[in-house]
């Protein structure tokens, strides 16, 4: 199988001048091709379906079982006592979160879900540590932002010629009929 597919490295060795010319020609050919990088920050990354970003919390669906706090490998989720609520509710420290998504896997009621963002800006460190009510409010805001992105979104796709190509998508992930991103 592939073990011998490459062949002996010495047998495939081209002559000195040819090797130089091939190297230069290969580099020069690439000079004419467009870049494969994603034009961030002019565009946002639409992410692949099922991307694991920050964890969102739905207070009404939570049953206070504390499984998420138990499974969280980074102790980003802790249980809080909320005034006027008999059960403990999870609070979330985004700064500690490693986006493994195990909490959403173990949540028995779909109270936790994953968003597609993980790169958000916070005013200060304390604002990253949220109690259950803050988390629920914040989650709604993240969802809204997800629905109305501040910049056009691009989704990466593998291309056999160019590696990765990007197509414009809207917030739901549907394709946008528009010409390609500006050429640079």
């Amino acid at each position: 199988m592939a073990g011998s597919a490459g062949g002996d490295r010495h047998r495939s060795r081209p002559g000195l001048v040819r090797a130089h010319l091939e190297a230069i020609a290969t580099a020069a050919r690439r000079l004419l091709e467009p870049p494969m990088t994603m034009p961030i920050p002019d565009y946002g990354d639409a992410r692949v379906p099922g991307y694991r970003g920050v964890v969102l919390f739905d207070y009404d669906k939570c049953i206070g079982c504390s499984l998420c706090a138990q499974i969280c490998p980074a102790r980003a989720i802790k249980m809080y006592r909320v005034p006027g609520d008999k059960r403990l509710r999870p609070g979330y420290n985004v700064g500690r979160c490693i986006f493994c998504g195990l909490c959403t896997d173990i949540c028995p009621t779909d109270a936790l879900s994953e968003s597609i963002v993980h790169d958000r800006v916070y005013d200060d460190v304390p604002s990253m540590d949220m109690d259950p009510v803050d988390w629920a409010v914040w989650s709604r805001r993240v969802l809204e932002e997800e629905r109305k992105p501040g910049r056009p979104l691009l989704r990466a796709r593998v291309d056999p010629e160019r590696g990765l190509v990007y197509e414009r998508v809207d917030a739901e992930g549907g394709p946008v009929a528009e010409e390609k991103g500006e050429e640079r």
């Binding site: 081209p14 090797a19 190297a23 796709r157 056999p160 160019r162």
Partner: peptide, 28 residues
Amino acid sequence: DEFEKAKRYMLRRLREYDKVFFNNPVIR
């Protein structure tokens, strides 16, 4: 489907790696 494309891409790129890097006399 995506993997199929990635494989074709990568195999082509490996030939380019050979030319620019692996068989480049300076690198050799």
